[in-house]
């Protein structure tokens, strides 16, 4: 952004950097701790004196995790990837169409549908998901990719974000296309979507993160066939005790893919929110 900078501002710029660096250290600290603990043995983690750099590294934990066939971490990573990618694409597709429609339906139907969408954001899902689960079971979707994806792919949040974005989309472009005889479907794909990649990337990123990190839903749905990475990792924290190194090594395995995806997609996210904005 371009900002008018007064002399005083310029005088403060050094201070700003100091604050930024200090804050950055705090924000990165948890990542450091995960890495430190993942490569330490238990005695290092529970040592009375905090070791910023562990006196002895232990790389075997991570190796053991991947070597343990019972644990099936690779299979779980695969499942998580499939589920997240599927859920992300489907959610974005469905919400994109709906968000556009809601932004263009400026009659009473549009208002009602928008309110219906907004209202669901206010209803806490922690309790209503038990009926959802029972229905999913009724469909015979337990322990299947379908069961992991379909019931949770209709995101009111994503639809709402898209709608708010498209409210600001310049209609002249669409009208020009309509005059050329294009129907709304064609207009949507040829004109609207190509000009909205930013917000699509943004919603996609958020959906992917949510799906990858989901815990309660997969806990109920997945059994032996479709464990996700979050479920597999929950094994290290049982009532029998906590295995610190394994727990943190597992956490590392779980966050590396999503952080990579995130770093790759985040420019879309920033762009997307900037061009459209939530209003």
């Amino acid at each position: 952004m371009s900002m008018v900078q007064s002399k005083r501002d310029r005088g403060l710029i050094g201070l700003r950097y100091v604050v930024l660096v200090v804050l950055a250290v705090f924000f990165l600290l948890p990542f450091y701790v995960i890495v430190r603990n993942a490569f330490s043995d238990n005695s290092t983690i529970v040592a009375a004196r905090w070791q910023w750099i562990p006196e002895k590294f232990d790389f075997s934990v991570l190796q053991r995790l991947f070597a343990d066939e019972q644990l099936g971490i690779l299979k779980a990573l695969g499942n998580s990837a499939v589920v997240s990618v599927l859920q992300t694409s489907l959610t974005v597709f469905v919400a994109l169409l709906a968000g556009y429609a809601l932004s263009r339906l400026d009659n009473v139907v549009g208002k009602i549908l928008t309110s219906l969408t907004l209202f669901t954001l206010m209803v806490p899902a922690a309790v209503t998901f038990l009926p959802t689960f029972v229905m999913t079971a009724q469909f015979g979707w337990i322990d299947s990719i379908r069961g992991l994806v379909i019931p949770v792919m209709f995101s009111a949040f994503a639809t709402y974000l898209f709608r708010q974005t498209f409210l600001n989309f310049p209609r002249e472009l669409e009208e020009a296309a309509a005059i050329d005889g294009a129907n709304p479907w064609t207009t949507f794909w040829r004109v609207v979507v190509p000009n909205s990649m930013g917000i699509i990337g943004a919603v996609g990123t958020i959906t992917f993160i949510g799906s990858w990190n989901a815990f309660l839903w997969p806990l109920l749905i997945s059994r032996s066939q479709t464990p996700t990475i979050q479920i597999v990792l929950s094994q290290f924290m049982t009532s029998q005790g906590v295995k610190y190194p394994e727990l943190f090594a597992g956490a590392l395995v779980a966050i590396v893919p999503v952080v990579l995806v995130f770093l790759f997609l985040q420019r879309f996210l920033v762009q997307g929110v900037e061009t459209s904005g939530i209003k």
């Binding site: 709906a98 263009r104 949507f188």
Partner: peptide
């Protein structure tokens, strides 16, 4: 056009009704 838009919104609205509103109603 509104019919088109209704068709666009349909998959989402149906999904929302089935997987969100039925459970809310049920609860």
């Amino acid at each position: 056009r509104n019919l088109w838009y209704a068709a666009f919104a349909a998959p989402f609205i149906i999904g929302l009704l089935v997987f969100v509103y039925i459970p809310i109603g049920w609860s």
